[in-house]
């Protein structure tokens, strides 16, 4: 059978004009789309053939300026890079086109990315270095050193990850995946001398890396494979390595795993909560602990299971640990 070269698709498009509309609404168009078309082609066709007032951003048409990011059925995409046929494979032929954030719409698919840029600026996203005013040669970075950036420098600031992050949607202080990736990008650069200051910024409670829920949405959303959550993990590591981790519930929660594994091989869940929260903080968990206890969900210290060959684990923890707290 020949592969389909065109398919009929129904598009529901989010419409809202901050200046004239009280509530947003959706326009529906049914169009024949070809296997070569990307979402931006469809937006152009709707604008040019049906409704000239439809507003969206586009510029490079090459997946590099980062301006055309929108959401299709909840998935953040670059309109100029995403083929319709790939989206149909995931969602079928009913597609809803929305702005990256419906909370921040100026008009239709255009949003105000102010919060994104503020967060970005907040992490000092530039090389901090004493430069020689009149250098005699170039500042060469070896391929080996360049690899340390782990492709964090591929970010095009499209905001796809930022507006897919659930932690940020709930807690507006949270710096968010794109700015964290930028913080990592410059801190991992061998020419940079501003890492410590940046690490202090991302180490703050409520806004820093500790409030990430580890949902991996940012890794999934990024059209450039920047993998922000991987960079967030690296920032955690760098905070411990730089010895600036504060003694708080978040850091103790990470360190507590190492203690527990050394002792039992397995995680002592109750002890982890006590160690992380401290003897006073742990009190607030008592009601749920009682409910769990009643239902046989709490293992008493004397019944704590242990891994077989625990001596191997102890030995490895000793020989393979790379940080101290």
């Amino acid at each position: 059978m020949d592969a389909l070269t065109s398919q009929q698709v129904t598009f529901k498009i989010f419409r809202f004009n901050e200046e004239t509309d009280y509530l947003p609404f959706y326009n529906t168009y049914t169009l024949e789309v070809t296997h070569e078309e990307v979402v931006l082609d469809i937006l152009n066709r709707i604008k040019w053939d049906h409704d000239g007032s439809l507003s969206y951003r586009r510029s490079c048409r090459h997946g590099i300026c980062g301006i055309c990011s929108i959401k299709i059925n909840g998935k953040a995409i670059l309109a100029c890079k995403s083929r319709l046929f790939d989206l149909i494979k995931i969602f079928g032929t009913d597609l809803t086109i929305e702005p990256l954030s419906t909370k921040r719409v100026i008009k239709d698919l255009i949003i105000d990315k102010k919060d994104f840029w503020e967060k970005h600026a907040h992490v000092n996203p530039y090389l901090v270095s004493d430069i020689v005013e009149e250098p005699t040669s170039e500042h060469l970075v070896s391929p080996h050193d360049a690899e340390k950036l782990n492709e964090a420098d591929y970010c095009i600031q499209c905001g796809a990850c930022h507006y897919s992050c659930p932690a940020l949607a709930i807690n507006e202080q949270f710096i968010g995946p794109a700015a964290f990736a930028a913080a990592y990008r410059f801190s991992a650069d061998v020419r940079d001398e501003g890492a410590l200051k940046r690490l202090h910024i991302v180490n703050q409670e409520a806004e820093g890396v500790w409030d990430c829920v580890k949902c991996m949405e940012c890794a999934e959303a990024c059209p450039k494979d920047v993998n922000p959550i991987e960079k967030i993990t690296k920032l955690h590591n760098m905070i411990f390595e730089a010895n600036i981790a504060k003694n708080n519930v978040a850091t103790r929660h990470a360190v507590g795993f190492a203690h527990s594994i050394t002792k039992h091989g397995l995680l002592d869940e109750g002890e982890l909560v006590r160690y992380s929260e401290g003897n006073i903080g742990v009190m607030k968990h008592i009601p749920e602990a009682i409910a769990m206890f009643k239902n046989g969900k709490i293992v008493m210290p004397w019944n704590m299971p242990k891994s077989k060959n625990l001596d191997e684990i102890k030995k490895l923890v000793k020989s393979s640990s790379t940080v101290k707290f």
Binding site: T233, F240, A254, A258, K308, N309
Partner: peptide
């Protein structure tokens, strides 16, 4: 014989140790 996987929190603290334990 298995140990805890680290639940992505040990990974935040000591990435190499978590690799060794999971590999084991």
């Amino acid at each position: 014989e298995a140990s805890c996987c680290g639940a992505s929190h040990l990974q935040d603290y000591d990435d190499f140790l978590s690799l060794v334990l999971n590999a084991r």
